[in-house]
Design a protein around this nucleic acid. Sequence first.
DNA 1: TCTTAGCACTCAATCCTATAGAGTGCTAAT
DNA 2: ATTAGCACTCTATAGGATTGAGTGCTAAGA
Lengths: 357, 357
Amino acid sequence: MFQLNLKGGGEIVMDLNERSRDILRAIIQSYISTAEPVGSRTVTKRYNLGISPATVRNIMSDLEELGFLVQPHTSAGRVPTDKAYRFYIDTMLEVKGLPRQQEEEILNYPLHRGDFHQLMQETTKLLSALSHYTGIIMAPKPAETVYRHMEFVRLTGGRVLAIFVSNAGIVHNRMINLDEDLTQKELEKISAFLNREMAGKTLREMRSRVLQLMEDDRNSYTRLMMKFMKVWQDASYEGEEGAEAELFVGGLSEMFNIPDFKDYDKMKELFIAFEEKHRLLKLLDLAMDAEGVQVYIGSENKYFEMQGISLVVASYRGEGNVIGTLGVIGPSRMPYNTVIPLVDCTARVLGRLISDR
Amino acid sequence: MFQLNLKGGGEIVMDLNERSRDILRAIIQSYISTAEPVGSRTVTKRYNLGISPATVRNIMSDLEELGFLVQPHTSAGRVPTDKAYRFYIDTMLEVKGLPRQQEEEILNYPLHRGDFHQLMQETTKLLSALSHYTGIIMAPKPAETVYRHMEFVRLTGGRVLAIFVSNAGIVHNRMINLDEDLTQKELEKISAFLNREMAGKTLREMRSRVLQLMEDDRNSYTRLMMKFMKVWQDASYEGEEGAEAELFVGGLSEMFNIPDFKDYDKMKELFIAFEEKHRLLKLLDLAMDAEGVQVYIGSENKYFEMQGISLVVASYRGEGNVIGTLGVIGPSRMPYNTVIPLVDCTARVLGRLISDR
DNA sequence: TCTTAGCACTCAATCCTATAGAGTGCTAAT
DNA sequence: ATTAGCACTCTATAGGATTGAGTGCTAAGA
């Protein structure tokens, strides 16, 4: 079906007895569905555990001491901590497959239109529409994309546009300002040479090959390529690895429907964080290597740590290789049992669409 | 210096006497700088008009009757209406050139990196950073772009990627699923034919030329082109003219710093409106034809009408032609005298950058 | 006739207080 | 070990008083 690969899962094996686990589960589930602090009476009423509120109170007190619950204030019920969510996801969550209906909805969503950018944008909207949270996608990184076709096009004023096309139909381009004036004929020769020598390589790989070629002779071919490589590096460099990746965000306004964030300043903080795209990208990059769906809870990760916010992320493939990641960002109290398969399914569908749309 | 072309300007010539105009100006300026309703005493204290609060009150009452002012409630001062802003901009605004320092800042902003998408994105950030509002840009529309270079690239599984490059180095692309399997050699022939026959045409123009050619004979050339045209139309069509344009937004979080919108629900409404990009695009499209800077106040336009929000928009050029528009979106009480030249200057700089970066 | 001082009036914002209600922790009984 | 009972805590809400900004009107003055 699908695979949930748990970040740090299994490391912390808590020994809670059956009943404590039942109560913790009940509290988490209740809080996920209502967003209200959960009291002892609520637990006994809504979940038939055959014990009295007083007993529940004693156990809740223990759970608080263990760091699974906190009280917003003395006379309120209790709320799960990040630790509780982690424990819940690692040991208690039963993730079923996606309901037939939602799968249909994903498959029927009009994702095929337009170019690659539009596909990415539409996919964030799909993620958002089905999860009712905000959808995010990290697009394939130029440096690690395998290119099939390359082309240099001469523009006015000694400018040359380099266009690189991947197997999956992703197009990347950069403008190069040339000192010498090459004719379009010459550029075509260079393009032909590149396509012959370099097809199936990533930029990283091309770079070392070009350096190798340069040792033999320094002709227009290699000079243009080196210029291109330099332009590329200049454009990519922002002091951070992975900064050259592109981030797409969709359904931002869904954040306003989440009761957890019904606060102006919290919202402001959140939107400022969204504009620091490189932080989110760092986090999305983490999920590149991992198989299956990852969940990052609250302040578990240092790149986008934010009280009460979690991310559900999965990598997607194009022509066989993992080329990016996608996911959903929402409150830590999100219904993981439905969001996880949703993200998983969307990643698969996107992969299929990229490989043969 | 620069030209402010006023939407509907001059039509409504209000005959207010000198003093009424002075007071109206004082109220608007005061409100722009403080965001607080303006009372009669404030006017006499902050602007030395040599009249008493009582007199001001009488005139304010008249101005209210004329529709220039409203009171939020009985015991509050008065606030300018959209009509007042319009009048202010049309007849009282003195727009100076951009301060040397800000011009420097625009010229020094690192806008040259990366591809065209990144350039657009960075420019919205520039607009936002200098205005402290939200920056928006409508990218060139494929249908009206003059292309210099066209290329069909064969991918796996009978898919063909069409790549079109404009004089200004803008790259548009679309995926085409072909029934027949053309070799890359054949595609190159078609590309060469296209570049010979169609260079310097817009998509619109190409379309009619292809239809013309088809009457003579229906070979692979024209069939592929027609398929491409169809794919293009499918992707562009969303029931709305101008829907195929792309919108870039930067500095959304600035909205949270504007006291006018210090309200959760107002903010929610605003962000939902931002996600309906086609509405904003419609509005930005309006400014394509007009020369100079346009100002759209509050509910003056039907595409993005929103209480208390205005847009300052200018078109930008690439290789001589107007290819898109850009601007700033903020509260109606924004300091137009600085924002207008800022938008104007940014449009010029972007145009220059596109034509020779 | 225009201007202005004076005054009563209105209304939002703020603060204070009382009250209700949810939930806990502790104790004693089962 | 469990649970009923009860005192205690704290938030949220509503009502009421107070303050202050600002207006509109009136009558006197220029």
